[in-house]
Design a binder for these strands. Structure first.
Lengths: 219, 219
DNA sequence: TCGTGTGAAGACGTTCACAGCT
DNA sequence: AGCTGTGAACGTCTTCACACGA
């Protein structure tokens, strides 16, 4: 209760493992070793074992991990036995794309409703989620006990809408606007800043190009 | 040359600082203290000073940092003096949204061309970037010396397309597909996995709800 | 006095290496 | 022999705390 028993980074990786396990399971494979699974997940085998250690003792020495069992254990820890309802606020370019994205469903989330300041302007092609005016959001959140929200409004409205979400009772926000949100400590925010992610890549490629004029075509 | 002089996390935060600085600069403010800027960026003041320390010595003790100067210094370190050309591969839901997204431009990137397996099927509304067939990608990359690519194809094609990108000479990939990409060490990959980010939020909200039946309406 | 710059301490995360089970 | 589970070493990131300059 005191300590965050499982570190966030581990949670993130557990999700990855879970995906890999599902693929293995579909292929009728029964057990997997840490080294094999680690390679599939793109991590160190030692790290994987450490991560799985947080779940308890699952593996069989000399053999590996039972895939089905391990998969279930991870699902339980991640709280994925049931579909999680999610709302989305801000149905612009990105918001609309996210509504059409099926990745959330695949991982156990259901976007139950979306909200926008100008719902009439939203192109509904390919979107099968109702899009309402933001003013209807608080009531919806309360009525359906929604805890999770995806925030994809323009930066200048992000804080304001975040406040409304928090007030309505949302406890977790996945924020796509390039803004540092100020929220009460009890609320979890995870920001995905697309431009910064690209910048991150950009920075780390300049290392290996001291050449500028000479197009080095070795290899 | 040997060591990654500036850690990745710092780079990420430098980008955030840079944004905040631009806002301050627009408001005619000349200097800022570490504590003020830190609050705006959502980090600890000590951390900010440490981060800025990587750039050299900029601040004036007792006064703070000169905004314009600091902003320039960060821009230089991030290599943002010039527009960086980027291509995007996979113009589906997400890819199309990213093409319409103006955040990349704002941070100094220019999406110069996009590619898709079925470019004819792409709805071009709001997109002012040419969309070609993927087969044209390698030639384009070579001709325009493109180093950066955004990858937003379906998961089942991600690795395959990544291989093509690498072979064509791309050195950095921002990957949006839920896949662990295998690439040569010289290539930088940064993966943004939307579903996992949501899951991350989801996990950390269950902590503070041991109550399930009783809707505790204190505060 | 105010606020930077930084050594030192601390927290956290990763990897090593090996004992021990199957 | 093969592979897990884990103490211990290692490395990285963050925060503290304070000397020092303006």
């Amino acid at each position: 209760m005191e300590k965050p028993l499982i570190p966030g980074k581990t949670i993130y990786r557990l999700s990855i493992y879970h995906r890999c396990l599902r693929r293995l399971d579909e292929n009728q494979i029964e057990t997997v070793s840490s080294s094999t699974l680690a390679k599939a997940a793109g991590v160190n085998a030692s790290q994987l074992r450490r991560d799985l250690g947080y779940l308890g003792t699952f593996g069989t020495r000399g053999l590996g991990y039972p895939i089905a069992e391990l998969s279930d254990a991870i699902r339980e820890v991640l709280g994925r036995e049931h579909l999680q309802p999610v709302i989305l606020v801000g149905v612009g370019n990105l918001g609309a794309a996210l509504l059409r994205y099926d990745g959330f469903q695949k991982e156990g989330f259901e976007v139950v409703s979306a909200f926008d300041a100008v719902p009439e302007a939203v192109v509904l092609r390919g979107i099968d989620v109702p899009v309402d005016h933001v003013s209807a959001m608080p009531a919806f959140v309360e009525k359906h006990q929604v805890r999770l929200a995806v925030l994809s409004v323009p930066a200048e409205h992000a804080q304001e809408v975040a406040n409304e979400l928090v007030e309505a009772g949302v406890q977790g926000i996945l924020n796509f606007s390039p803004t540092v949100l100020q929220v009460p400590e009890s609320v979890t925010v995870n920001s995905v800043d697309l431009a910064l992610e690209l910048e991150q890549v950009s920075f780390f490629i300049k290392k290996e190009e001291p050449v500028k004029v000479e197009p080095d075509v070795s290899s």
